[in-house]
Amino acid sequence: MVARSLRAERGPLRRIGTAGVWLLVAFNVGVLGWLLVAALREHTAIFRDPWGLDSLGQFGNFVRAWSDSDFGRAAGNTALVAVGASVVVVLISAPASYALAKTRTRLSGMMAVLFAVGIGIPTQVIVIPLFALMQDAGLVNSLTGLFVLYVALSVPFTVFLLTGFFGSLPDEVEEAAAIDGAGAVRTFAQIVLPLARNGLLTAFLLNLVGLWNETFVALVFVQDSAKQTLALSLLGFLQTQQYSGADYGALFAGVAILVVPMLLLYLWLGRRIIEGMTVGAVK
């Protein structure tokens, strides 16, 4: 009853607030919609009337971006490296997180803190030694090198996230498995991992989103245009436009190629992504 009367409360402040919220929502949706529309319009039309709708239906924009500007190859590179690294980092981090969450010693606590500190180290602080390291290993300007870096740099966050997940799993099932005589490795692979698949999937998704959009590491470690990721292609495309004349239609088609896969993923698994990304702050 009271809750209902609270809900019905309508001050002028609240009305302004509600209007403001919907304005923000309209803005976000508008920017996204505009991007998708512009990707299908002719360059001159966008330039003449950026907010109009004429000349819609220029699928040639996508063809030009995909083949002439190499977004196609970059999309392949990005998908390969981002998906591969996200899978591998989860495979490496899962046993470690399990060990940290379930071994209740002072040492495991200290290790958990050590990994957490890594989240606070920005990449630009360690990028110079990393570059020297990768150069010595002959892994600069190679997709393999990028893959290795993506896996390694995603370890602290993934371990941190998964330690929380494993910590929240009940011990009883494992105890039952132990009594039934299952070995520890088998218990982990056949009992614990399936139980934790929600957490593993979330960790995979968050890494995938992060690595798909990653730019800084790629910018430093990849120069060859054949090995570029999508974010680099977009930057490179901006550059060619300065010399050979702007083509906004194809530019926004390129942007769309970068954004639409994430948009679809978000429409499909948005709740999981949102909750996974915010869960750390809410304990």
Binding site: S93, L100, G118, L133, A178
Partner: peptide, 25 residues
């Protein structure tokens, strides 16, 4: 049993962390 698995399970992630974070820092 878990304690016996501690190091084997932790080692790969820890190695990556030491090589790519602790060392470079």
């Amino acid at each position: 049993r878990r304690r016996r698995l501690f190091w084997p399970f932790l080692a790969p992630a820890l190695a990556l962390y030491v090589v790519f974070f602790v060392g470079p820092a």
